[in-house]
Amino acid sequence: MSSCAVILAGGQASRMGGGDKGRLMLGGRSLIDRVIERISPQVGAIVLSANGDLTRFDDLGLPVVADSIPDHAGPLAGILAGMDWASEHGHDWLITVAADTPFFPMDMVERLSGYDNPVVLAATPDPEFGMRRQPTFGRWHVEQRHDLRSALNMGVRKIRQWAEAQDEVLVVFDNADFFNINTPEDLAWAEQHLA
């Protein structure tokens, strides 16, 4: 059962002043380069999910897919685009990672692959809620794409809402594994963490 990964890079980065967050520099390298380096050994192929002028990612040497659902429908639309690409290229499973989260574990795919459920999401401990989903980090069976497309066309936008209906399983990781960079302060923290 082969798997590929989609790097979700379609966000609008409003809290960083716009642009591609994955292009932000951390320790002399872009976030997206760090994400590619981490996910490459874990999967058989990688595709990038983005919107707008897709040629701006030509330098990465990866296939790039745009949302098939209009009006910036969020990460679920990027997951669907990745599922469609994975299906077309003979992959049974899609792994999702975010372009703005450079510290996810090197054994993440292995740990997510221990279940046959159609949706397996990473989660982290949360003192208030017990567990917090990391919804852009997961393993998705590509056969679910038809259900996902229907849900998106009916207005579903929250990953949690759709995943819960798919008999999801949560796999617990450490909090620091999924630190995502949304603000200049986050980037400063990441620089310190890297050091």
Rank of each mutant, 00 (worst) to 15 (best):
N175A: 09
M83D: 00
P63M: 03
D126E: 05
D174T: 12
I181A: 07
T55Y: 12
N175S: 12
V120T: 04
N182W: 05
F104C: 01
V43G: 15
R133Q: 09
V47T: 08
P118T: 13
E37S: 11
F129G: 09
M131A: 06
A98I: 00
E164S: 04
E164T: 11
P102A: 13
V171G: 15
D116K: 06
D174C: 10
G61H: 06
A98V: 00
F103Q: 08
K158I: 07
E168C: 03
S68Y: 08
P184Y: 09
G61I: 02
D71A: 12
W140A: 05
N51M: 08
H146D: 07
V65E: 01
V64E: 05
H146P: 08
S49K: 03
G90V: 02
R132S: 14
D116W: 06
E88N: 13
R149I: 13
I159K: 00
L121R: 14
I39W: 06
P125A: 01
E88F: 07
M131Q: 15
H141C: 09
F57I: 03
E128I: 11
F179V: 11
K158E: 10
P102R: 15
F103I: 14
D177I: 03
M154R: 07
R111N: 15
A165G: 11
E143N: 14
P70S: 01
G130M: 01
N117E: 14
P102K: 08
D71Y: 14
L76N: 07
D53R: 04
V43F: 07
I181T: 09
L62P: 02
D58F: 05
Q166N: 12
L60C: 06
G155L: 08
A165M: 14
H89M: 06
A122I: 06
S49F: 05
W140I: 13
D58P: 04
G44W: 12
T101W: 00
P75K: 00
E164F: 10
T124V: 15
P41Q: 14
L54V: 07
R132Y: 08
Q166C: 09
L62N: 01
G44Q: 08
D167G: 04
A45H: 11
L80I: 07
V64I: 07
V120F: 01
I95S: 01
A98G: 01
E88T: 10
P70K: 01
Q134V: 09
I69R: 04
L152A: 05
Q134E: 08
G155C: 07
P135E: 08
P75C: 09
D107I: 11
P184N: 04
Q161F: 14
W140N: 05
S40T: 10
S68K: 09
R145K: 09
G155A: 10
M154N: 04
L54S: 14
N51E: 15
M108E: 11
F57K: 01
M131W: 11
F179Y: 13
S150P: 12
Q42I: 15
R133S: 07
G114L: 15
A165S: 12
R149P: 09
E128A: 06
V142F: 03
H72S: 11
N117D: 15
A66N: 00
E88S: 13
V97S: 07
D147I: 11
L170V: 06
V97T: 03
T124N: 01
F103C: 10
M131V: 05
A151W: 03
E88Y: 13
V120I: 04
A98F: 00
A77V: 04
G44Y: 08
L148Y: 03
R133I: 08
H89L: 06
